[in-house]
Each structure stands twice: as C-alpha cells, then as structure tokens.
C-alpha cells in the first residue's frame, strides 16, 4: 500500500492555496491507482472509476473507450444488481461480473459514492483479475477516507 501512503502524504501536505485543486488532484490520484492496477496484472487491460450516478472520473485503457457511456452503464447495472440482491435477501451486491467470449467485465462498489469497472482480455484469470480489482477498491477507499474530514 505504498502508493496510498504517498498519495495521502501529498494530499495532506497541501498548502491552503492549492485547496482549489483538490478535485483535480483527487482525479490524478485515481489515475495513479488505475495505472498501477494495469501495471500489476495482465489480467486487466482497461479500468474506469466513476461516480455512483454515472459520471466518469478517471480511466486507463490500451484502446480508447467511451468512458461517459461506460460510466452511466456501470452505474445502471450495479444499481439494479443491488436491488435484486437486496430483494433476494442477500444484502447489497459487492460486484457484478459479465462474462463474454472476448473477455470479462467486473463492476465493483468503491465506497458509497464511486464505482470501479475493470475489463479483462479473453484469456484472463477471473480470480486474479477480481483480486487485483478488489485491491484497487481498497486503495480508492483509503484515498476517499483520507480526504473525508
């Protein structure tokens, strides 16, 4: 979790005149988390962080993606999955898994206000991809917590 420590340190050392940049800086830190996620594993080749209401915050991908549409679709899918899971007596959904011939897509909650969507290549190891995605979620949560007064 060295990245997170570094991120938190930079954010906490912010001088007051830099406060205006807090959200830009936050998005930059999200970008760092995503880049290191893609560097850490071949099982993920694109990732997107978005708000619960479907607005793209940060994305990293080998090929360009339509992050605005993907963010909106991720939030719609996860919200419906939460409903189904709750109504089936299983509590809120931790993640949604879409398995397709050319790859898999995970949509995960990252705290109450953010989502992480990861995309895998066709040959990816599902367990490894999910484990790395979960680690990124922990990093996002730690970042958000560090910034919440």
């Amino acid at each position: 979790m060295q990245i997170i420590k570094d991120i938190i340190e930079t954010l906490q050392n912010k001088s007051p005149n830099k406060v205006i940049d807090a959200s830009t800086q936050f998005n930059q830190q999200l970008q760092i988390i995503l880049k290191s996620l893609l560097q850490a594993t071949d099982n993920i080749n694109a990732a997107l962080i978005s708000s619960a209401d479907g607005i793209a915050k940060s994305q990293v991908a080998a090929n360009p993606m339509d992050e605005h549409r993907f963010a909106a679709m991720s939030s719609a899918l996860l919200a419906l999955s939460d409903n189904l899971s709750k109504e089936a007596g299983k509590g809120t959904a931790e993640n949604v898994l879409i398995e397709s011939k050319q790859g898999k897509i995970f949509i995960l909650h990252a705290g109450p206000h953010l989502l992480l969507t990861v995309f895998t290549p066709a040959a990816a190891n599902l367990g490894m991809a999910l484990a790395h995605a979960r680690q990124a979620v922990h990093q996002i949560n730690a970042l958000v917590e560090a910034l919440t007064p």
């Binding site: 209401d53 607005i55 419906l80």
Partner: peptide, 19 residues
C-alpha cells in the same frame, strides 16, 4: 434505483435514478 447525485442535479435534489 436512486443514488446520491454528484453532478449539477444536486442543486435540484439529493438522489437521482440511474437505471
């Protein structure tokens, strides 16, 4: 499927339908 708003909708209401 309402979730908290983070965009300019927040000025109108607290939650918004996403699905």
């Amino acid at each position: 499927t309402d979730v908290p708003c983070s965009d300019d909708t927040r000025a109108i209401k607290a939650t918004t339908t996403v699905a």
